[in-house]
Design a binder for these strands. Structure first.
Lengths: 266, 266
DNA sequence: CGACACCTTGAAGAGGTTCAAGAAATGTGG
DNA sequence: CCACATTTCTTGAACCTCTTCAAGGTGTCG
Protein backbone atom coordinates (compact mmCIF):
# COMPACT_ATOMS: atom_id res chain seq x y z
CA UNK A 1 0.00 0.00 0.00
CA UNK A 2 1.84 3.06 1.15
CA UNK A 3 5.52 2.52 0.68
CA UNK A 4 7.61 5.20 2.28
CA UNK A 5 10.73 3.93 0.60
CA UNK A 6 9.54 4.79 -2.85
CA UNK A 7 9.94 8.09 -4.44
CA UNK A 8 6.44 7.73 -5.72
CA UNK A 9 5.12 8.26 -2.28
CA UNK A 10 7.71 10.67 -1.12
CA UNK A 11 7.25 14.24 -0.23
CA UNK A 12 9.55 16.88 -1.66
CA UNK A 13 11.43 16.94 1.58
CA UNK A 14 11.68 13.27 2.33
CA UNK A 15 15.23 13.36 1.11
CA UNK A 16 16.15 16.38 3.11
CA UNK A 17 19.74 16.09 4.28
CA UNK A 18 19.79 15.68 8.00
CA UNK A 19 23.26 17.01 8.44
CA UNK A 20 24.26 17.72 11.96
CA UNK A 21 25.46 21.12 10.89
CA UNK A 22 25.00 23.25 13.96
CA UNK A 23 24.66 26.67 12.33
CA UNK A 24 21.41 27.25 10.55
CA UNK A 25 22.68 30.04 8.40
CA UNK A 26 24.99 28.89 5.67
CA UNK A 27 27.06 31.49 3.84
CA UNK A 28 27.68 30.73 0.23
CA UNK A 29 31.14 31.28 -1.09
CA UNK A 30 33.42 30.15 -3.83
CA UNK A 31 34.34 27.01 -1.91
CA UNK A 32 31.02 25.38 -2.42
CA UNK A 33 30.13 26.63 -5.84
CA UNK A 34 28.30 23.36 -6.29
CA UNK A 35 25.29 24.71 -4.50
CA UNK A 36 24.92 27.74 -6.71
CA UNK A 37 21.63 28.34 -8.49
CA UNK A 38 23.17 27.38 -11.79
CA UNK A 39 23.65 23.88 -10.44
CA UNK A 40 20.43 23.64 -8.49
CA UNK A 41 17.94 21.14 -9.77
CA UNK A 42 15.14 23.45 -8.71
CA UNK A 43 16.48 26.25 -10.86
CA UNK A 44 13.77 25.90 -13.41
CA UNK A 45 11.24 26.61 -10.69
CA UNK A 46 12.95 29.60 -9.08
CA UNK A 47 14.79 31.16 -11.96
CA UNK A 48 14.17 32.07 -15.58
CA UNK A 49 15.14 29.70 -18.37
CA UNK A 50 17.31 30.29 -21.38
CA UNK A 51 20.09 32.24 -19.76
CA UNK A 52 23.56 32.36 -21.21
CA UNK A 53 26.70 31.55 -19.25
CA UNK A 54 27.32 35.12 -18.19
CA UNK A 55 23.80 35.58 -16.96
CA UNK A 56 23.94 32.32 -15.07
CA UNK A 57 27.01 33.61 -13.29
CA UNK A 58 25.10 36.72 -12.33
CA UNK A 59 22.16 34.67 -11.13
CA UNK A 60 24.49 32.81 -8.82
CA UNK A 61 25.12 36.03 -6.97
CA UNK A 62 21.48 36.44 -6.01
CA UNK A 63 21.47 33.80 -3.35
CA UNK A 64 23.96 34.85 -0.74
CA UNK A 65 22.75 32.71 2.12
CA UNK A 66 20.87 29.61 2.94
CA UNK A 67 18.94 29.12 6.08
CA UNK A 68 17.75 25.98 7.77
CA UNK A 69 14.34 26.26 9.36
CA UNK A 70 13.40 23.58 11.84
CA UNK A 71 9.93 22.13 11.78
CA UNK A 72 7.62 24.39 13.71
CA UNK A 73 9.81 27.47 13.61
CA UNK A 74 9.12 30.73 11.86
CA UNK A 75 10.86 31.84 8.70
CA UNK A 76 9.48 35.35 9.14
CA UNK A 77 6.53 36.88 10.80
CA UNK A 78 4.12 39.77 10.68
CA UNK A 79 6.00 43.00 11.26
CA UNK A 80 9.47 41.70 10.39
CA UNK A 81 11.43 43.99 8.17
CA UNK A 82 11.36 42.83 4.58
CA UNK A 83 14.74 42.35 2.96
CA UNK A 84 14.67 39.10 1.07
CA UNK A 85 12.55 36.68 -0.79
CA UNK A 86 12.97 33.05 0.15
CA UNK A 87 13.18 30.21 -2.32
CA UNK A 88 12.37 26.91 -0.69
CA UNK A 89 15.08 24.38 -1.37
CA UNK A 90 13.88 21.63 0.86
CA UNK A 91 10.79 21.31 2.96
CA UNK A 92 7.29 22.57 3.32
CA UNK A 93 5.80 25.75 4.73
CA UNK A 94 2.49 27.27 5.60
CA UNK A 95 1.90 30.97 5.47
CA UNK A 96 -0.86 32.62 7.43
CA UNK A 97 -2.23 35.93 8.58
CA UNK A 98 -3.68 36.56 12.00
CA UNK A 99 -6.60 38.83 12.76
CA UNK A 100 -6.62 41.12 15.77
CA UNK A 101 -8.64 38.67 17.81
CA UNK A 102 -6.02 36.01 17.25
CA UNK A 103 -7.80 33.99 14.62
CA UNK A 104 -5.33 32.39 12.26
CA UNK A 105 -6.05 32.15 8.55
CA UNK A 106 -3.74 29.96 6.49
CA UNK A 107 -3.15 31.73 3.18
CA UNK A 108 -1.07 29.08 1.49
CA UNK A 109 1.11 26.01 1.64
CA UNK A 110 4.47 26.22 -0.12
CA UNK A 111 6.80 23.48 -1.24
CA UNK A 112 10.28 23.17 -2.73
CA UNK A 113 10.88 25.50 -5.63
CA UNK A 114 8.26 28.00 -4.52
CA UNK A 115 8.94 31.51 -3.30
CA UNK A 116 7.96 33.04 0.02
CA UNK A 117 7.90 36.63 1.19
CA UNK A 118 6.21 38.49 -1.66
CA UNK A 119 3.82 40.08 0.83
CA UNK A 120 6.67 42.10 2.30
CA UNK A 121 7.40 44.20 -0.76
CA UNK A 122 4.31 46.38 -0.42
CA UNK A 123 5.26 48.01 2.85
CA UNK A 124 8.86 46.92 3.41
CA UNK A 125 7.70 44.69 6.21
CA UNK A 126 5.96 41.36 6.26
CA UNK A 127 2.23 41.23 6.76
CA UNK A 128 1.97 37.50 7.13
CA UNK A 129 3.84 34.68 8.80
CA UNK A 130 5.64 31.68 7.40
CA UNK A 131 6.31 28.59 9.44
CA UNK A 132 8.05 25.37 8.47
CA UNK A 133 5.84 22.30 8.62
CA UNK A 134 8.92 20.09 8.45
CA UNK A 135 12.65 20.61 8.63
CA UNK A 136 13.35 22.88 5.72
CA UNK A 137 15.97 24.93 4.00
CA UNK A 138 15.55 28.14 2.09
CA UNK A 139 17.73 30.28 -0.15
CA UNK A 140 17.81 33.94 0.81
CA UNK A 141 17.51 36.26 -2.14
CA UNK A 142 18.01 39.87 -1.06
CA UNK A 143 15.36 41.85 -2.84
CA UNK A 144 17.66 44.74 -3.69
CA UNK A 145 19.84 42.28 -5.51
CA UNK A 146 16.86 40.82 -7.34
CA UNK A 147 15.90 44.29 -8.50
CA UNK A 148 19.44 45.06 -9.64
CA UNK A 149 19.57 41.88 -11.61
CA UNK A 150 16.13 42.47 -13.05
CA UNK A 151 17.42 45.69 -14.50
CA UNK A 152 20.29 43.90 -16.21
CA UNK A 153 18.53 40.75 -17.33
CA UNK A 154 15.10 41.23 -18.91
CA UNK A 155 14.21 37.57 -18.60
CA UNK A 156 14.92 37.81 -14.89
CA UNK A 157 12.68 40.85 -14.67
CA UNK A 158 9.89 39.09 -16.49
CA UNK A 159 10.36 36.07 -14.27
CA UNK A 160 9.91 38.09 -11.09
CA UNK A 161 6.79 39.66 -12.52
CA UNK A 162 5.40 36.28 -13.45
CA UNK A 163 6.00 34.87 -10.00
CA UNK A 164 4.09 37.72 -8.44
CA UNK A 165 1.30 37.57 -10.97
CA UNK A 166 1.02 33.83 -10.47
CA UNK A 167 0.46 34.43 -6.78
CA UNK A 168 -2.31 36.90 -7.60
CA UNK A 169 -3.95 34.37 -9.89
CA UNK A 170 -3.61 31.65 -7.28
CA UNK A 171 -5.34 33.82 -4.73
CA UNK A 172 -8.12 34.57 -7.20
CA UNK A 173 -8.66 30.84 -7.35
CA UNK A 174 -8.84 30.57 -3.60
CA UNK A 175 -11.40 33.34 -3.49
CA UNK A 176 -13.51 31.36 -5.92
CA UNK A 177 -13.13 28.32 -3.71
CA UNK A 178 -13.93 30.12 -0.49
CA UNK A 179 -16.72 32.11 -2.00
CA UNK A 180 -18.64 29.44 -3.77
CA UNK A 181 -17.66 25.85 -3.06
CA UNK A 182 -19.04 23.37 -0.57
CA UNK A 183 -16.89 21.58 1.96
CA UNK A 184 -16.26 18.46 -0.11
CA UNK A 185 -15.63 20.43 -3.25
CA UNK A 186 -13.07 22.50 -1.41
CA UNK A 187 -11.24 19.47 -0.15
CA UNK A 188 -11.29 17.88 -3.60
CA UNK A 189 -9.81 21.03 -5.12
CA UNK A 190 -7.20 21.14 -2.38
CA UNK A 191 -6.08 17.54 -2.86
CA UNK A 192 -5.90 17.83 -6.62
CA UNK A 193 -3.90 21.01 -6.38
CA UNK A 194 -1.44 19.50 -3.94
CA UNK A 195 -0.92 16.34 -5.90
CA UNK A 196 -0.50 18.31 -9.14
CA UNK A 197 2.24 20.40 -7.63
CA UNK A 198 3.95 17.34 -6.21
CA UNK A 199 3.69 15.60 -9.52
CA UNK A 200 5.36 18.57 -11.22
CA UNK A 201 8.26 17.88 -8.86
CA UNK A 202 8.54 14.27 -9.87
CA UNK A 203 6.32 12.63 -7.29
CA UNK A 204 3.33 10.42 -7.65
CA UNK A 205 0.15 11.58 -9.34
CA UNK A 206 -1.95 9.67 -6.90
CA UNK A 207 -0.24 9.46 -3.54
CA UNK A 208 0.77 12.13 -1.13
CA UNK A 209 1.64 12.75 2.48
CA UNK A 210 -0.04 15.69 4.08
CA UNK A 211 2.39 17.85 5.94
CA UNK A 212 -0.30 19.81 7.76
CA UNK A 213 -2.98 19.07 10.32
CA UNK A 214 -6.69 18.84 9.60
CA UNK A 215 -7.04 22.13 11.39
CA UNK A 216 -4.56 23.83 9.06
CA UNK A 217 -6.31 22.42 6.02
CA UNK A 218 -9.57 23.66 7.49
CA UNK A 219 -8.18 27.13 8.04
CA UNK A 220 -6.98 27.28 4.46
CA UNK A 221 -10.30 26.06 3.14
CA UNK A 222 -12.50 28.09 5.45
CA UNK A 223 -13.75 25.02 7.29
CA UNK A 224 -13.53 23.56 10.77
CA UNK A 225 -11.27 20.62 11.36
CA UNK A 226 -14.22 18.33 12.04
CA UNK A 227 -15.66 19.19 8.66
CA UNK A 228 -12.38 18.37 6.96
CA UNK A 229 -12.22 15.10 8.82
CA UNK A 230 -15.75 14.20 7.82
CA UNK A 231 -15.06 15.07 4.21
CA UNK A 232 -12.04 12.76 4.21
CA UNK A 233 -14.16 10.00 5.70
CA UNK A 234 -16.82 10.57 3.08
CA UNK A 235 -14.27 10.40 0.25
CA UNK A 236 -12.90 7.17 1.68
CA UNK A 237 -16.37 5.71 2.08
CA UNK A 238 -17.20 6.58 -1.53
CA UNK A 239 -13.97 5.05 -2.75
CA UNK A 240 -12.55 8.28 -4.07
CA UNK A 241 -9.44 8.21 -1.94
CA UNK A 242 -7.74 6.00 0.59
CA UNK A 243 -7.02 7.84 3.81
CA UNK A 244 -4.56 6.54 6.35
CA UNK A 245 -3.92 9.39 8.72
CA UNK A 246 -1.88 11.81 6.65
CA UNK A 247 -1.18 9.34 3.88
CA UNK A 248 -3.54 9.90 1.02
CA UNK A 249 -3.98 7.87 -2.10
CA UNK A 250 -6.22 9.27 -4.76
CA UNK A 251 -8.21 6.51 -6.42
CA UNK A 252 -10.63 8.46 -8.57
CA UNK A 253 -9.14 11.77 -9.53
CA UNK A 254 -11.65 11.91 -12.35
CA UNK A 255 -14.53 12.01 -9.92
CA UNK A 256 -12.76 14.53 -7.71
CA UNK A 257 -12.23 16.71 -10.72
CA UNK A 258 -15.88 16.44 -11.64
CA UNK A 259 -16.87 17.62 -8.20
CA UNK A 260 -15.15 20.94 -8.63
CA UNK A 261 -16.08 21.62 -12.24
CA UNK A 262 -19.73 20.83 -11.81
CA UNK A 263 -20.65 21.75 -8.27
CA UNK A 264 -23.46 19.43 -7.26
CA UNK A 265 -26.19 18.50 -9.69
CA UNK A 266 -26.85 21.41 -12.02
CA UNK B 1 -8.89 67.53 -8.42
CA UNK B 2 -12.32 66.16 -7.67
CA UNK B 3 -14.84 68.92 -7.34
CA UNK B 4 -14.97 69.62 -3.62
CA UNK B 5 -18.40 71.11 -3.97
CA UNK B 6 -20.11 67.77 -4.21
CA UNK B 7 -17.50 65.85 -2.37
CA UNK B 8 -19.55 64.75 0.55
CA UNK B 9 -21.85 62.24 -1.01
CA UNK B 10 -20.16 61.79 -4.32
CA UNK B 11 -18.62 58.77 -5.90
CA UNK B 12 -15.32 58.96 -7.74
CA UNK B 13 -17.11 58.87 -11.04
CA UNK B 14 -20.04 61.09 -10.33
CA UNK B 15 -18.40 63.75 -12.41
CA UNK B 16 -17.38 61.51 -15.23
CA UNK B 17 -17.43 63.50 -18.42
CA UNK B 18 -20.25 62.37 -20.64
CA UNK B 19 -18.75 63.62 -23.82
CA UNK B 20 -20.41 62.44 -26.97
CA UNK B 21 -17.02 61.47 -28.35
CA UNK B 22 -17.77 58.66 -30.72
CA UNK B 23 -14.42 56.86 -30.64
CA UNK B 24 -13.64 55.10 -27.41
CA UNK B 25 -9.94 54.79 -28.01
CA UNK B 26 -8.09 58.05 -27.64
CA UNK B 27 -4.54 58.25 -28.95
CA UNK B 28 -2.26 60.47 -26.95
CA UNK B 29 -0.02 62.83 -28.82
CA UNK B 30 1.80 66.06 -28.42
CA UNK B 31 -1.33 68.06 -29.09
CA UNK B 32 -2.95 67.23 -25.84
CA UNK B 33 0.06 67.14 -23.59
CA UNK B 34 -2.25 68.29 -20.83
CA UNK B 35 -3.42 64.76 -20.25
CA UNK B 36 0.02 63.27 -19.75
CA UNK B 37 0.77 61.41 -16.51
CA UNK B 38 2.96 64.22 -15.30
CA UNK B 39 -0.10 66.44 -15.21
CA UNK B 40 -2.56 63.85 -14.03
CA UNK B 41 -3.99 64.43 -10.60
CA UNK B 42 -4.06 60.69 -10.02
CA UNK B 43 -0.34 60.39 -10.66
CA UNK B 44 0.45 59.85 -7.04
CA UNK B 45 -1.75 56.77 -7.12
CA UNK B 46 -0.50 55.23 -10.36
CA UNK B 47 3.08 56.38 -10.50
CA UNK B 48 6.07 56.65 -8.19
CA UNK B 49 6.83 59.86 -6.37
CA UNK B 50 10.00 61.92 -6.33
CA UNK B 51 10.87 61.78 -10.00
CA UNK B 52 12.97 64.42 -11.65
CA UNK B 53 11.96 66.27 -14.79
CA UNK B 54 13.65 63.84 -17.13
CA UNK B 55 12.06 60.86 -15.48
CA UNK B 56 8.67 62.52 -15.59
CA UNK B 57 9.09 62.94 -19.32
CA UNK B 58 9.84 59.27 -19.63
CA UNK B 59 6.82 58.36 -17.53
CA UNK B 60 4.66 60.29 -19.93
CA UNK B 61 5.58 57.82 -22.63
CA UNK B 62 4.09 54.88 -20.73
CA UNK B 63 0.51 55.74 -21.40
CA UNK B 64 0.03 55.69 -25.13
CA UNK B 65 -3.71 55.35 -25.23
CA UNK B 66 -6.85 55.97 -23.29
CA UNK B 67 -9.96 53.98 -23.61
CA UNK B 68 -13.50 54.76 -22.66
CA UNK B 69 -15.43 51.83 -21.28
CA UNK B 70 -19.18 52.15 -21.16
CA UNK B 71 -21.06 50.97 -18.13
CA UNK B 72 -21.64 47.27 -18.42
CA UNK B 73 -18.98 46.58 -21.02
CA UNK B 74 -15.84 44.56 -20.62
CA UNK B 75 -12.37 46.04 -20.35
CA UNK B 76 -10.83 42.60 -20.86
CA UNK B 77 -11.88 39.10 -20.28
CA UNK B 78 -10.64 35.63 -19.51
CA UNK B 79 -8.47 34.41 -22.35
CA UNK B 80 -7.68 37.81 -23.85
CA UNK B 81 -4.05 38.28 -24.71
CA UNK B 82 -2.25 40.32 -22.10
CA UNK B 83 -0.44 43.35 -23.39
CA UNK B 84 -1.19 46.22 -21.05
CA UNK B 85 -2.01 47.19 -17.55
CA UNK B 86 -4.87 49.60 -17.13
CA UNK B 87 -4.88 52.57 -14.80
CA UNK B 88 -8.37 53.74 -14.03
CA UNK B 89 -8.73 57.44 -14.69
CA UNK B 90 -12.44 57.76 -14.20
CA UNK B 91 -15.03 55.26 -13.12
CA UNK B 92 -15.47 52.03 -11.28
CA UNK B 93 -14.87 48.39 -12.19
CA UNK B 94 -15.44 44.94 -10.88
CA UNK B 95 -13.16 42.07 -11.68
CA UNK B 96 -14.29 38.50 -11.46
CA UNK B 97 -13.41 34.95 -12.33
CA UNK B 98 -15.86 32.38 -13.59
CA UNK B 99 -15.80 28.71 -12.74
CA UNK B 100 -16.50 26.05 -15.34
CA UNK B 101 -20.09 25.72 -14.27
CA UNK B 102 -20.63 29.41 -14.88
CA UNK B 103 -20.54 30.58 -11.30
CA UNK B 104 -19.16 34.09 -11.10
CA UNK B 105 -16.87 35.11 -8.26
CA UNK B 106 -16.14 38.80 -7.89
CA UNK B 107 -12.47 39.17 -6.95
CA UNK B 108 -12.36 42.91 -6.48
CA UNK B 109 -13.80 46.34 -7.06
CA UNK B 110 -11.46 48.96 -8.48
CA UNK B 111 -11.77 52.72 -8.51
CA UNK B 112 -9.92 55.70 -9.99
CA UNK B 113 -6.18 55.51 -9.49
CA UNK B 114 -6.12 51.74 -9.17
CA UNK B 115 -4.56 49.33 -11.62
CA UNK B 116 -6.22 46.47 -13.45
CA UNK B 117 -4.77 43.57 -15.38
CA UNK B 118 -2.02 42.22 -13.13
CA UNK B 119 -3.47 38.73 -13.48
CA UNK B 120 -2.43 38.64 -17.11
CA UNK B 121 1.31 38.75 -16.55
CA UNK B 122 1.57 35.18 -15.32
CA UNK B 123 0.55 33.50 -18.54
CA UNK B 124 0.47 36.34 -21.06
CA UNK B 125 -3.28 36.13 -21.12
CA UNK B 126 -5.94 37.28 -18.73
CA UNK B 127 -7.45 34.81 -16.31
CA UNK B 128 -10.15 37.07 -15.02
CA UNK B 129 -12.62 39.58 -16.38
CA UNK B 130 -13.02 43.28 -15.76
CA UNK B 131 -16.27 45.09 -16.39
CA UNK B 132 -17.13 48.75 -15.92
CA UNK B 133 -19.85 49.39 -13.35
CA UNK B 134 -20.26 52.90 -14.69
CA UNK B 135 -19.01 54.87 -17.66
CA UNK B 136 -15.26 54.81 -17.19
CA UNK B 137 -11.99 55.71 -18.76
CA UNK B 138 -8.67 53.92 -18.42
CA UNK B 139 -5.09 54.64 -19.39
CA UNK B 140 -3.41 51.84 -21.33
CA UNK B 141 0.09 51.11 -20.14
CA UNK B 142 1.77 48.58 -22.44
CA UNK B 143 3.55 46.18 -20.15
CA UNK B 144 6.67 45.97 -22.32
CA UNK B 145 7.03 49.69 -21.92
CA UNK B 146 6.55 49.44 -18.18
CA UNK B 147 9.31 46.87 -18.02
CA UNK B 148 11.63 49.00 -20.13
CA UNK B 149 11.05 51.98 -17.93
CA UNK B 150 11.49 49.89 -14.81
CA UNK B 151 14.95 49.02 -16.00
CA UNK B 152 15.85 52.68 -16.38
CA UNK B 153 14.14 54.11 -13.34
CA UNK B 154 14.60 52.16 -10.11
CA UNK B 155 11.78 53.98 -8.35
CA UNK B 156 9.48 52.93 -11.17
CA UNK B 157 10.63 49.37 -10.77
CA UNK B 158 9.99 49.44 -7.07
CA UNK B 159 6.62 51.02 -7.67
CA UNK B 160 5.52 48.21 -9.97
CA UNK B 161 6.64 45.66 -7.43
CA UNK B 162 4.76 47.41 -4.69
CA UNK B 163 1.56 47.53 -6.69
CA UNK B 164 1.73 43.81 -7.27
CA UNK B 165 2.64 43.04 -3.69
CA UNK B 166 -0.18 45.22 -2.46
CA UNK B 167 -2.58 43.15 -4.50
CA UNK B 168 -1.22 39.99 -2.91
CA UNK B 169 -1.65 41.49 0.55
CA UNK B 170 -5.17 42.63 -0.29
CA UNK B 171 -6.10 39.14 -1.36
CA UNK B 172 -4.66 37.72 1.84
CA UNK B 173 -7.06 39.99 3.66
CA UNK B 174 -9.98 38.73 1.61
CA UNK B 175 -9.03 35.18 2.40
CA UNK B 176 -9.16 36.03 6.08
CA UNK B 177 -12.55 37.58 5.55
CA UNK B 178 -13.95 34.69 3.54
CA UNK B 179 -12.41 32.09 5.77
CA UNK B 180 -13.40 33.33 9.15
CA UNK B 181 -15.90 36.16 9.29
CA UNK B 182 -19.65 36.11 9.66
CA UNK B 183 -22.00 37.78 7.22
CA UNK B 184 -22.34 41.06 9.09
CA UNK B 185 -18.65 41.25 9.84
CA UNK B 186 -17.92 40.80 6.17
CA UNK B 187 -20.23 43.58 5.18
CA UNK B 188 -18.79 45.87 7.84
CA UNK B 189 -15.28 45.20 6.59
CA UNK B 190 -16.42 45.81 3.04
CA UNK B 191 -18.05 49.15 3.79
CA UNK B 192 -15.14 50.42 5.83
CA UNK B 193 -12.70 49.43 3.14
CA UNK B 194 -14.71 51.15 0.42
CA UNK B 195 -15.18 54.35 2.36
CA UNK B 196 -11.51 54.44 3.31
CA UNK B 197 -10.45 54.21 -0.29
CA UNK B 198 -12.92 56.88 -1.30
CA UNK B 199 -11.75 59.09 1.51
CA UNK B 200 -8.16 58.73 0.28
CA UNK B 201 -9.47 60.20 -2.98
CA UNK B 202 -11.00 63.20 -1.32
CA UNK B 203 -14.51 61.99 -0.68
CA UNK B 204 -16.51 61.73 2.46
CA UNK B 205 -15.49 59.53 5.34
CA UNK B 206 -19.05 58.62 6.05
CA UNK B 207 -21.08 58.67 2.87
CA UNK B 208 -20.81 56.62 -0.26
CA UNK B 209 -22.74 55.48 -3.28
CA UNK B 210 -22.48 51.81 -4.07
CA UNK B 211 -21.76 51.21 -7.69
CA UNK B 212 -22.54 47.50 -7.54
CA UNK B 213 -25.60 45.37 -6.88
CA UNK B 214 -26.28 43.41 -3.73
CA UNK B 215 -25.55 40.31 -5.71
CA UNK B 216 -22.10 41.57 -6.69
CA UNK B 217 -21.35 42.50 -3.11
CA UNK B 218 -22.53 39.06 -2.09
CA UNK B 219 -20.32 37.37 -4.63
CA UNK B 220 -17.31 39.31 -3.41
CA UNK B 221 -18.09 38.49 0.21
CA UNK B 222 -19.07 34.87 -0.33
CA UNK B 223 -22.72 35.50 0.54
CA UNK B 224 -26.06 35.42 -1.21
CA UNK B 225 -27.70 38.68 -2.14
CA UNK B 226 -30.51 38.09 0.36
CA UNK B 227 -27.97 37.81 3.14
CA UNK B 228 -26.35 41.06 2.09
CA UNK B 229 -29.72 42.76 2.00
CA UNK B 230 -30.60 41.45 5.46
CA UNK B 231 -27.27 42.59 6.83
CA UNK B 232 -27.87 46.09 5.48
CA UNK B 233 -31.31 46.11 7.08
CA UNK B 234 -29.82 44.96 10.36
CA UNK B 235 -27.20 47.70 10.29
CA UNK B 236 -29.89 50.28 9.58
CA UNK B 237 -32.10 48.92 12.33
CA UNK B 238 -29.21 49.09 14.80
CA UNK B 239 -28.39 52.63 13.77
CA UNK B 240 -24.96 51.81 12.40
CA UNK B 241 -25.66 53.05 8.90
CA UNK B 242 -28.39 54.74 6.94
CA UNK B 243 -29.32 52.81 3.85
CA UNK B 244 -31.22 54.39 1.02
CA UNK B 245 -30.95 52.03 -1.91
CA UNK B 246 -27.33 52.38 -2.94
CA UNK B 247 -26.71 55.50 -0.93
CA UNK B 248 -25.01 54.62 2.30
CA UNK B 249 -24.22 56.86 5.22
CA UNK B 250 -22.06 55.42 7.94
CA UNK B 251 -23.20 56.62 11.33
CA UNK B 252 -21.10 54.53 13.67
CA UNK B 253 -17.86 53.56 12.03
CA UNK B 254 -16.47 52.88 15.49
CA UNK B 255 -18.95 50.07 16.03
CA UNK B 256 -18.42 48.69 12.56
CA UNK B 257 -14.72 48.63 13.22
CA UNK B 258 -15.28 46.81 16.48
CA UNK B 259 -17.25 44.13 14.70
CA UNK B 260 -14.32 43.12 12.57
CA UNK B 261 -11.58 43.35 15.15
CA UNK B 262 -13.45 41.39 17.77
CA UNK B 263 -15.60 38.90 15.92
CA UNK B 264 -18.64 38.30 18.08
CA UNK B 265 -18.25 38.01 21.81
CA UNK B 266 -14.70 36.69 21.94
C1' DC C 1 4.31 5.22 30.53
C1' DG C 2 1.88 9.37 30.73
C1' DA C 3 1.01 13.86 28.71
C1' DC C 4 -0.20 15.95 24.72
C1' DA C 5 -1.48 16.81 20.08
C1' DC C 6 -4.20 15.06 16.56
C1' DC C 7 -8.08 12.73 14.54
C1' DT C 8 -12.76 10.69 14.24
C1' DT C 9 -17.59 10.47 15.01
C1' DG C 10 -22.18 11.63 16.96
C1' DA C 11 -25.82 14.84 18.16
C1' DA C 12 -27.65 19.33 18.71
C1' DG C 13 -27.70 23.95 17.16
C1' DA C 14 -26.95 28.21 14.37
C1' DG C 15 -26.12 30.86 10.41
C1' DG C 16 -26.85 31.23 5.83
C1' DT C 17 -29.28 29.51 1.76
C1' DT C 18 -33.19 28.56 -0.92
C1' DC C 19 -37.68 29.44 -2.40
C1' DA C 20 -41.23 32.62 -2.89
C1' DA C 21 -43.74 36.86 -3.26
C1' DG C 22 -44.12 41.61 -3.68
C1' DA C 23 -42.34 46.36 -4.04
C1' DA C 24 -39.45 49.76 -6.03
C1' DA C 25 -36.36 51.46 -9.43
C1' DT C 26 -34.59 51.45 -14.17
C1' DG C 27 -34.73 51.15 -18.92
C1' DT C 28 -37.14 50.67 -23.51
C1' DG C 29 -40.02 51.52 -27.18
C1' DG C 30 -43.96 53.45 -28.93
C1' DC D 1 -43.93 61.12 -21.70
C1' DC D 2 -46.19 57.07 -20.40
C1' DA D 3 -46.79 51.91 -20.36
C1' DC D 4 -44.55 47.80 -19.85
C1' DA D 5 -40.75 44.68 -19.17
C1' DT D 6 -36.77 43.94 -16.56
C1' DT D 7 -33.71 44.34 -12.96
C1' DT D 8 -32.91 45.09 -8.28
C1' DC D 9 -34.07 44.93 -3.57
C1' DT D 10 -36.59 43.48 0.65
C1' DT D 11 -38.70 40.29 3.72
C1' DG D 12 -40.68 35.86 5.38
C1' DA D 13 -40.47 30.84 6.15
C1' DA D 14 -38.54 26.31 5.59
C1' DC D 15 -34.51 23.93 4.97
C1' DC D 16 -29.69 22.48 4.89
C1' DT D 17 -24.87 22.68 5.52
C1' DC D 18 -21.53 23.46 8.50
C1' DT D 19 -20.37 24.51 13.28
C1' DT D 20 -20.28 23.61 18.02
C1' DC D 21 -19.98 20.70 21.80
C1' DA D 22 -18.68 16.37 23.51
C1' DA D 23 -16.47 11.96 23.96
C1' DG D 24 -13.31 8.52 22.76
C1' DG D 25 -9.45 6.80 20.07
C1' DT D 26 -4.78 6.87 18.19
C1' DG D 27 -0.12 8.21 17.68
C1' DT D 28 4.04 10.65 19.34
C1' DC D 29 7.62 12.29 22.22
C1' DG D 30 9.94 13.28 26.41
Amino acid sequence: MFDPAQKSFANPASNAPSTSHSANVIPINSHNIKIACSNCNLRELCMPLGLNREELDQIDTVVNMRRKVKKGSLLFHNGDKFTSLYAIRIGFFKSFVASEDGHEQVTGFQMAGEVLGLDGIASDSHTCNAIALEDSEVCLMPFDRIEELSRDIPSMQRHVHKIMSREIVRENGIMLLLGSMRAEERLAAFLLNLVDRLHARGFSQSELVLRMTREEIGSYLGLKLETVSRAFSKFAEDGLVEVDKRNIRILRSDLLREMISRPECD
